[in-house]
Amino acid sequence: MKTIHEKLGLETKSEGITLIDAHHHLWNLDLHHYPWLKNYDPNTFLGDYRSLIRNYLLEDYAKDSAGHRILATVHCEADHDYNHEVSETRWVHEQAERTGFPNAVVAHVWFHHDNCEEILTQHKQFPLLRGIRSKPVTASCSEQAETVKGAAGSMQDEKWLTGFALLEKYQLSWDLRVPFWHLEEAAQVARAFPNTRIVLNHMGFPWDRSEQGLALWRKGMKALAACPNVYVKISELGLRDQPWTVEGNRGVVLETVEMFGIARCMFASNFPVAGLQISYHDLVNNISEILSGFSQQQRDAFFWQNAQSFYRIDLS
């Protein structure tokens, strides 16, 4: 299979790391509406993200990832206008037909909405659909986590659980995205649906690197790691207004790999969002440095084989 750079006629370096990117985004602001990009909010965990308010197409991704051998990519829904969520899936498939990438798609559905199954069946018309990312209702901080339990759209909401159960019926995985103070609740869902494969996005956002914050993060991660149907993406390790450093992130990465095992961990860039703090080249190389103690076989599993298997990517 040709790499993304070969497909697009761009130079690629043979010494770069071979990988499948298990999580990135694309958007065309001329054609589609992304509320978070239309209405800039400086108070998000991203900090100043105004540089993202531009079109980001496959050609842009290919330029960012130059220097590495990208065998395949997984497009994850990018908070598109949820009144027209299927149009994002359609557009991403048009990009795949044009360029050969991405090679798997994670779309959006609201599990607790009455039209959940209707939207799922519309997404299922597209052949690269592999999973769903539907963000449950969460609290803004750990101290308020209990206040949203049982609320509409939360992971205890019966309507939400009924919609979630459809993933097994349609043979789709769930991309789990919650802050670390909700990880134990997510583990309860994972145990209740052992036949549904789940992948945690962004390592549960270990934003609080204090001893107390890491203890709470670690407790939730261990609960999820105890569920054999849960995998994890090593991604989005940036901290607001702080530089991305190897030493700053080595501990949480190695702890995550130890808890889940390398066979359930996968590389994911979260570009272009992660580009707010680090280049693609440095991101890959920094993660590679952190994992330097692992064998080549284990590194191959982490950088591309696990994602290929989880998202059922055809590399022929």
Rank of each mutant, 00 (worst) to 15 (best):
M1C: 04
M1H: 12
K2H: 02
T3A: 11
K7I: 00
S14G: 01
G16D: 00
H24L: 02
H24Q: 05
H33T: 11
Y34P: 01
Y34W: 07
Y34H: 09
Y34G: 07
W36V: 09
K38E: 15
N39M: 08
Y40V: 01
N43M: 04
Y49R: 03
R50W: 01
L57Y: 02
L58S: 03
A62N: 02
A62W: 00
K63Y: 12
S65G: 02
A66W: 00
G67V: 09
G67R: 10
I70A: 02
I70K: 09
A72R: 03
C76R: 08
C76P: 09
A78K: 04
A78N: 11
D79L: 11
E85Y: 09
E88A: 11
W91Q: 06
H93D: 12
R98E: 13
F101E: 00
F111D: 11
E118T: 13
L120S: 10
Q122G: 03
Q122A: 14
T138N: 08
S142G: 09
A145C: 11
A145Y: 06
W160E: 04
W160F: 14
L167K: 15
L172M: 14
S173A: 13
F180Q: 15
F180N: 08
W181C: 05
Q188I: 00
Q188F: 02
Q188D: 14
Q188S: 13
F193G: 10
P194N: 06
L200D: 02
G204E: 04
E211D: 11
G213I: 03
A215K: 12
W217G: 02
K219V: 05
K219E: 15
M221P: 07
M221W: 08
L224N: 08
L224D: 09
A225R: 11
A226W: 01
C227P: 08
V230E: 08
E236S: 15
G238H: 14
R240M: 13
D241C: 06
E247H: 04
G248A: 06
N249Q: 12
G251D: 12
V252I: 13
V252M: 03
V257H: 10
M259I: 10
F260P: 01
G261F: 12
F267N: 06
L276A: 05
D282E: 10
N285C: 05
N286M: 03
N286E: 07
N286I: 00
I287L: 13
E289R: 12
F294L: 11
Q296Y: 06
Q296E: 15
R299D: 01
D300L: 06
Q305Y: 10
A307D: 04
A307Q: 00
Q308S: 05
F310W: 13
D314W: 00
L315M: 13
L315C: 14
S316I: 05
